Simulated scan of single mutants.
Amino acid sequence: MRAAYAIAADPTDPRSALRVADLPETSPPEGWVTVDVRAGSLNQHDLWSLRGVGLRADRLPMILGCDAAGVDQDGNEVVVYPVVADETDPRGLSLLSERFPGTLAERVSVPPENLVPKPEGLSFVDAACLPTAWLTAFHMLTTRGRVEQASAVLVQGAGGGVATAAVVLAVAMGKRVYATSRDASKRERIAALGATAVEPGARLPERVEVVIESVGAPTFEHSMKCSAPGARIVVCGATGGHLATVDLRRLFAMRLELLGSTMGTGPELAALLDFLVEKDVRPVIDSTYGFSAIADAFARLESGEIFGKVAIDFLH
């Protein structure tokens, strides 16, 4: 079975730990079902796995990947929800590719409840971009951020998968969206998505009720200053640094909520799929690679130049 997998952990050169080759198939846990993968996509999680973060040495080699869409054993077109129960993990759960084999292979096995029907209106490639980054953004906006109560949203560091998804989703939800990026060309692309693109730290024309924060230390003070009374600052990552300074006076005086957020639920993934079809919205895809070019796809992801998702089309 063709697969992309980690053979080691390399904190400084993660792609040196990547292999794309045939692996023998293992027997899935009892009751699990197998999906023939048609498309997948990459996430920063895959690079962190190659660095050895969240992936124990005794579980190597490990097939990478959290995202996939394909065809199940009964011929149904499905999207794979990548979170599985895991009693060995302190969280009580793990993502595919942490304990159980991931999605960057010709076949992947999951519990049957982890399969969500793929709507006819979404291609396999589009659907495979959704289970991690887009689901994370959807959960941040709806469940954690309570965006239905908001008029305006700030997204920090747009360009990557989660932040770009948050921009597109918030615009589709009818919100006024502001998004920051250090890159002038990315700000142009953000504006084309319907948001007001600004430089990091720029003064906004209004305070916002929801902030989508994945950058961390470099932008956190700006996130707090841009927040309206009672605003929700929803944090899913800290790509720029995890030791952010929090002005507690502003926190209590403005009655701000700081909310951590990770992934989303299976029903939320189904709701996201329905929302995209209803609104005729499709994920922003930076580039698409065939399976034989997965190494190039990882290089593109690691470059930091992406705008949207890096997708893998297993049929090419």
Score class of each variant (00 low, 15 high):
E77A: 14
A163H: 05
E106D: 07
R91A: 13
R176S: 13
V125F: 15
F138G: 05
V162Q: 03
L193Q: 11
V110Y: 03
A85H: 10
C129T: 13
V162W: 06
E87M: 15
G157F: 10
F138K: 07
G75C: 11
Y178D: 10
D74L: 14
V79S: 09
S123Q: 14
L193F: 09
A152F: 13
A192V: 03
Y81D: 01
V171W: 15
E77S: 12
G174S: 10
L193I: 11
E188N: 08
P112V: 10
G121V: 10
A191D: 00
V171G: 12
L135F: 12
A133T: 03
P90W: 15
R176C: 13
G75D: 14
K175I: 08
T142E: 15
V78P: 03
A133E: 00
Y178N: 08
S151P: 06
A128D: 02
L104G: 00
V171R: 15
E106V: 01
G92N: 00
A158Y: 11
D126G: 09
R187Q: 00
V116K: 15
L135M: 11
S185N: 12
S181R: 05
Q149G: 06
P117K: 14
D72N: 09
N114P: 00
K186I: 06
R144D: 02
G157L: 12
